[in-house]
C-alpha cells in the first residue's frame, strides 16, 4: 500500500545568534494509512522540529528547510507557502500539543473553539457545526457535552482539556494526526485514559498518527512502528517488536537499559554517559560516538548509513557492517529483549 506521507531527506536549520543549528539532518520515513508511528528521542533530538516541519510551522526567517521533501497527497509540503499550508493544516493534517493549558484560547468557549475549524475548513453552517461539535465531544468522552460546550477552558481539568484539544484536532477528519508529547503534562492515570482514547479513535476513524514522546513505556503501548531519533537523525526504525525485542543501535540499547525493570533493584542502571552534542557544530562521524561504549574507530570518521536488518527494520550503526566485530547488547537490554516473561510475572 502506498504511504500517505513520505518524508525524504528532510533537513531543518535554525539561525541563532550563536550560529546555525542543524536541528534535523536528513530524516527519512513514511507513514501508512491507519498506523501509528512513534518518534522517540531526547530533548533536542529534533523530533519536535521534524513534526513542526510537517505542519509548516517552522518559523521563518530563522528556521529553514534547506533540503528535503515532505510528500503528502501528491504535494511537497516543504515547498508550500504559508497560505497554501493553512488550507491543509487543521484539515488534512492536525496537531495535538503537549500542554493543553496553552493550546486552548482561555477567553473562548469550548464549543466555539471546536466549531471554528469546522466552519472555516468544511464550510458547515453554524447549526451543522454545533451538531458536529457535540458529536466530537461525545467521541472524546466528555460527559454532558451540551453543558460543556458553553464553558471556558479553565473550567476543565487537565485531562478533560486534552480531550477537548483532541476533539478540535479531529474536527475535520484529518488524514494524519500529529501528537507532540500529548500526555507528558498529565498524570499517569490520566495519561493512560488519553492514550486509550486515541487508540480507540484511531480504530474508529482509521487516522494515521505520528506520536512524539520520550517515554518508551508509552511507545510500547501505542506504536505500530518506532523511529528512534538522536542528534537530528533517525538512528533506528522498525516495528515496535523489532525495536523493543531486537534493538540494533547502541543508543536504543542505552535508552532501554536506562529504565529499571521490575527486578533490577540491585543492579546499576545502564546510563548513557555525557550529554547530546551541540548541533551548531555537529561532530564528525557518528554523532553518538562520543557517548557510545561500543564505539568503533570508524564512528569518529564517517557517518554510518542505514543498514537493513529486515524488511521492516533498519538501523544506522557501523556495528551492522560485515567487518564489524560481534558485539552483544548489554545484559540488562538482553533481559529486556526476552522481556515478556519478566514483566509478565508481575501481574500473576
Amino acid at each position: 500500500m502506498d504511504p500517505i506521507l513520505d518524508v525524504k531527506n528532510l533537513n531543518v536549520t535554525f539561525d541563532t545568534y550563536g550560529g546555525k543549528v542543524q536541528a534535523v539532518r536528513g530524516v527519512n520515513f513514511s507513514l501508512k494509512k491507519g498506523e501509528t508511528l512513534a518518534i522517540v528521542g531526547e530533548s533536542g533530538s529534533g523530533k519536535s522540529v521534524t513534526t513542526k516541519a510537517l505542519m509548516g510551522l517552522i518559523k521563518k526567517p530563522a528556521g529553514k528547510i534547506p533540503e528535503g521533501e515532505i510528500l503528502f497527497d501528491g504535494k511537497d509540503l516543504a515547498k508550500l507557502d504559508n497560505k497554501q499550508m493553512q488550507k491543509i493544516r487543521g484539515k488534512d493534517l492536525s496537531m495535538i500539543f503537549q500542554d493543553p493549558m496553552t493550546s486552548l484560547n482561555p477567553t473562548m468557549k469550548i464549543g466555539k473553539q471546536i466549531m471554528e475549524g469546522l466552519i472555516l475548513h468544511q464550510k458547515l453552517s453554524k447549526q451543522q457545526a454545533k451538531e458536529r461539535a457535540l458529536e466530537l465531544l461525545n467521541l472524546v468522552g466528555i460527559p454532558y457535552p451540551e453543558k460543556r460546550m458553553n464553558q471556558y477552558p479553565h473550567q476543565f481539568s487537565g485531562g478533560m482539556r486534552q480531550r477537548v484539544v483532541i476533539a478540535i484536532a479531529l474536527a475535520c477528519n484529518p488524514k494524519v494526526l500529529i501528537a507532540d508529547e500529548p500526555t507528558t503534562a498529565l498524570d499517569v492515570t490520566i495519561q493512560a485514559q488519553i492514550i486509550e482514547l486515541m487508540k480507540d479513535i484511531q480504530k474508529k476513524m482509521d487516522t494515521s498518527i505520528i506520536f512524539i514522546t520520550h517515554d518508551l513505556g508509552v511507545v510500547a503501548n501505542v506504536a505500530d512502528r518506532v523511529a528512534v531519533m538522536y542528534a537530528g537523525k533517525i538512528v533506528e526504525i522498525g516495528t515496535v517488536d523489532d525495536v523493543f525485542y531486537n534493538p540494533k543501535h547502541p543508543y536504543t540499547w542505552g535508552l532501554l537499559g536506562s529504565l529499571p525493570t521490575v527486578d533490577s533493584n540491585e543492579e546499576k542502571l545502564m546510563a548513557i554517559p555525557g550529554t547530546p552534542p551541540d548541533l551548531i557544530h555537529p561532530p564528525k562521524g557518528d554523532a553518538f560516538a562520543a557517548r557510545n561504549e561500543f564505539a568503533l574507530a570508524i564512528d569518529f570518521e564517517e557517518e554510518p548509513p542505514m543498514f537493513k536488518v529486515s524488511d521492516t527494520h533498519s538501523a544506522a550503526t557501523w556495528l551492522l557492517h560485515e567487518n564489524a566485530p560481534d558485539i552483544e547488547p548489554p545484559a540488562t537490554v538482553k533481559k529486556r529483549m526476552a522481556g515478556i516473561s519478566v514483566e509478565g510475572e508481575r501481574q500473576s
Partner: peptide
C-alpha cells in the same frame, strides 16, 4: 575504505562527553 582496522573498538573517555564546546 572499510578495512578491518577501522572497525576496532575504541575506548570512549567519559570526561570527554561532558566537555562544553561553546
Amino acid at each position: 575504505k572499510y578495512s578491518k582496522e577501522k572497525f576496532q573498538r575504541v575506548h570512549v573517555r567519559e570526561e570527554l562527553s561532558e566537555e562544553l564546546t561553546r
